[in-house]
Nucleic acid binder design. Sequence first.
DNA 1: TGCCGTGGTCGATTCGATCCATACGCACGA
DNA 2: TCGTGCGTATGGATCGAATCGACCACGGCA
Lengths: 145, 145
Amino acid sequence: MDRIDHGIIDRLRLNARAGYADIGAEVGLSASAVKRRIDRLVADGVIRGFTVQVDPAVEGLATEAYVELFCRGTVSPTDLKRILAGVPEIVEAGTVTGEADAIVIMRARDVIALEDALEKVRAAATVDHTRSAIVLSKLITRTAG
Amino acid sequence: MDRIDHGIIDRLRLNARAGYADIGAEVGLSASAVKRRIDRLVADGVIRGFTVQVDPAVEGLATEAYVELFCRGTVSPTDLKRILAGVPEIVEAGTVTGEADAIVIMRARDVIALEDALEKVRAAATVDHTRSAIVLSKLITRTAG
DNA sequence: TGCCGTGGTCGATTCGATCCATACGCACGA
DNA sequence: TCGTGCGTATGGATCGAATCGACCACGGCA
């Protein structure tokens, strides 16, 4: 992970379908050297995968919510992970400092679908209650971009 | 945006570097037909770009926080956007329902850098106070996956 | 019937995967 | 000190595969 690797990753972030020769021209390496480095980055797990950024509105996942999770007693992160893994609407989740035990980001087609998904989370015995904040308008979206 | 388009996007989501022929074999189209559809999806803005998923820890952005923003009086989303756009550590932000005016997701190298970034947000005159929740452990990460 | 959108085929070109020779850094021992 | 061997990284050449663009065929529709 030197400066060149970071340069390659930056280029791939902008366009994951860029050719090796193009990337090489920008970072000052030959195409084969670039390929070797990318292969190594993938093998090492630094690059987890190549994907597309899709307009969320088109995908039909226009409704998003941040949900604070409050649990009964003490729940291990492992248990929490198992509970949340079963809800596909959950995009991101993590245990956090502060009042809540975890914060969950959910994405669904509409508010109805969101409520259904939220109900699935609430159904877990360990979940005491939740506090939701539905996203009204997106101000900044720099995820993978 | 028919069923085939969704199939193509699903394939690309898993591997944005997949060949047209491979994708075509899965959705039942020839390679050139797949290319035409992908070109159209890009031109129409459905596909915003091709990117890589990088291990955040390797990228040196190991510390993440969810921050609730409370503003003085009423602040328009436009003003809020302008304020937040100047802080590069902000990954995502949106106005929300509920107590807080907005929720901001920040990512930084460590807690120190996070605090610095948070200070920049707090410096804005319209920001009354903030409530942060630092992520202890990531449970689910399905962003673009 | 003519037009438009969509898909298949084909050939020229480009790109990617793989091998080979080479250069640098470094430890080891004569 | 010098030479040798090893591991790592690079650049170039090669061959096969993928991509790109042009052309034509088919079906729905006014």
